[in-house]
Amino acid sequence: MTTFLQLAVSGIALGSIYGLVALGFLVIYHATGLVNFAQGQLLMAGAMTAYVLLMQLDLGYPLVLLGVVVVALLLALVFRYGIHRPMVRRGAPTENMVVATIAFGLVLTAAAELGIGNTRYGVDPIFPGAPIAIGGVSMQTQSIVITAVAWVLVGLVWFFFTKTLTGVSLRAVGLNRTAAAVSGVRVSRLITVAFALSVIVTAVGGALVAPIIGAGPSMGLAIAVKGFAAAVLGGMSSVYRGMVAGVAIGLIEMLSSYYISSAYAPVIAYTILFLALVLMPARVRKSGATA
């Protein structure tokens, strides 16, 4: 039982990160219909920023998190005004834009390799100290922080999308751009808001996970694939369903790795993604987006 709980605790923390990445995917997808394949690299950018600010510049965590948000905001603006909007204005087809997101990700990776270095760097946790043990189950403080912050962020994003006029308007932009425009919603500006929100959430996810797995240019892909799986598994519809799906994937990964076989755990995780991709589209069409 202790072993099961131990695995569950790890799975929830890991899955919460997948959920955050899913959240990042969904926010841009809802606003623009674009699947952003640079999400993993944006997570990496958050982690690398945290590394530079915390370990190289010796700033405190409040400033580090502020810095991560600022860098995320800048990246979002570059992404939106440097790539996305010009392509939209030229009437670029969706597939070109998807390729552009992949290219943007590759550029971010190369920039991190050249600017910071191509290796994994350790990042101190927010609360250093021994793992906390409760009834035989031990947790790293950082895992607790990850889980808590991830769910708070999902809560905030949910609140934003359902309880604020800007959030509801942003959903309207994604659901029916004409409806939003004739209602006076500043469509272009709100799409920028969506990019900023998505990148900030993802980059904060990166900063959170860095103390556990380190920060490095190539860290994003594995997490992004599972985050994407979580978004699809959640029906590409709601932020909290993506989060729940993320946690489910994290749990399955941990439990199957222990109880079935550690060698097949990645296979199991990717099988879930394939199943999700094959089975989900019908449901996505039916349910539509509801926050």
């Binding site: 006029l165 309207a172 659901l175 029916n176 409806a179 209602s183 006076g184 987006a289």
Partner: peptide
């Protein structure tokens, strides 16, 4: 009509208050 079909009536009306 161009409504946001999956949003509630109240939410559709809320979007209308943007101006």
């Amino acid at each position: 009509r161009e409504l946001c079909a999956s949003m509630t009536v109240a939410e559709n009306l809320a979007v209308g208050t943007v101006p």
